[in-house]
């Protein structure tokens, strides 16, 4: 593996090929917020909270650090006016669904997000997919998945599989950034007799 040199927030970084900007940042102690990221899971790139500015060949782009591969001479900025604005609006959008999430609340304070910017529609789910992906990638059970698309997308347990697998596992509950309320509710609903 060849060594790749670049900078994150003006700090020199040594990374290896195939690493992402997020991994490289972590290795030198630069914090980038994430919501849908989990070390054991494949990068997903859905929450977009980890967006950073990268400069290559004189061109600045805004990319998801959990997916963007490191490259030589990259200049990464993890905070800027634009980045902070993106994070603030994303947090405000997610707070409309999960107003009681501790993680979102902390981020809201850091980025000055207005909890009441958008009308509340508490579904408790921000579609980070951690539960869905953990069940598929680690447990290999696929007991829950996403259904529908766009604004109507939601997570759903498959009743038959859930009845067999879930009561003794519930490992996904721990991962939920919105306090597992949604997963618990949807699971109960899936298992309750019609």
């Amino acid at each position: 593996m060849s060594e790749i040199l670049f900078t994150i927030d003006a700090k020199e970084v040594k990374a290896t090929e195939g690493m992402t900007v997020l991994e490289a940042a972590k290795s030198i102690g630069v914090f980038i917020p994430t919501l849908c990221h989990h070390e054991k899971l494949e990068p997903y790139g859905a929450c977009r909270i980890c967006m950073v500015e990268v400069e290559t060949g004189g061109r600045t782009r805004i990319v998801a650090s959990c997916l963007y591969p490191v490259e030589p001479n990259l200049v990464v900025r993890t905070r800027s006016q634009t980045i902070d604005k993106i994070r603030r609006v994303l947090i405000e959008e997610m707070l409309a669904h999960a107003p009681d999430s501790v993680q979102l609340d902390e981020l809201a304070k850091e980025y000055g997000a207005d909890r009441d910017r958008f009308e509340k529609e508490p579904s408790f789910c921000i579609h980070c997919g951690l539960c869905v992906r953990y069940c598929a990638e680690i447990k290999k059970k696929n007991a829950l998945g996403f259904i529908d698309r766009g604004a109507r997308r939601e997570i759903s347990f498959i009743p038959k599989l859930a009845a067999e697998e879930c009561w003794n596992c519930k490992e996904c509950f721990e991962l939920c950034p919105t306090s597992a309320l949604q997963a618990a509710y949807v699971l109960a609903q899936a298992l309750s007799p019609v």
């Binding site: 859905a46 977009r48 579609h127």
Partner: peptide, 22 residues
């Protein structure tokens, strides 16, 4: 149209479109 047709994976598209439509 897009609120129905967005795949719903990422926040800025799914939630952005939802709020814009509202």
């Amino acid at each position: 149209f897009l609120a129905d047709e967005s795949c719903g994976k990422c926040v800025p598209c799914r939630e952005g479109i939802r709020q814009m439509l509202k």
